[in-house]
């Protein structure tokens, strides 16, 4: 039988999964390589471990939402990611969806707490 903490952790991860993609796409409106992307997300309050981030970056790139290129910086080869045009369009639609969902859930939660 899973404990309350396990149940909470599973639900928290499910809740975060979709929003992490939104955060990554949003952050990549400016160019980043993996490590600085993770730092930037962390500084903004969105912690993501590299075990989740790098596979996600590859998936998003395979879907055409990101572009990447290898470049040398600080004496090392790094892979830089950026939102593609298609990614920008998808992000725009997702943000609208996010705002609308957020407003609806907020309204429900406020109604329930009354």
């Amino acid at each position: 039988m899973p404990s309350d903490a396990d149940i909470f952790e599973t639900l928290r991860q499910e809740l975060r999964r979709g929003s992490l993609i939104l955060a990554v796409l949003g952050q990549l409106r400016s160019e980043h390589y993996g490590y600085t992307l993770r730092r930037a997300l962390g500084d903004a309050g969105v912690e993501i471990d590299e075990g989740a981030l790098y596979p996600m970056l590859r998936r998003l790139e395979a879907q055409g939402l990101l572009t990447s290129e290898w470049r040398e910086e600080e004496r090392r080869n790094k892979r830089f990611y950026r939102l593609s045009d298609e990614g920008g369009a998808v992000l725009g639609r997702l943000v609208k969806e996010w705002a609308s969902l957020n407003a609806s859930v907020d309204a429900i939660l406020k109604g329930n707490t009354r």
């Binding site: 390589y33 993996g34 490590y35 590299e50 590859r58 790094k78 892979r79």
Partner: peptide, 17 residues
Amino acid sequence: GQRADIVAELRDELLSA
């Protein structure tokens, strides 16, 4: 097919950390 590419990226991540 993806090995070299992923390992190179993870190496940079680890060394940066």
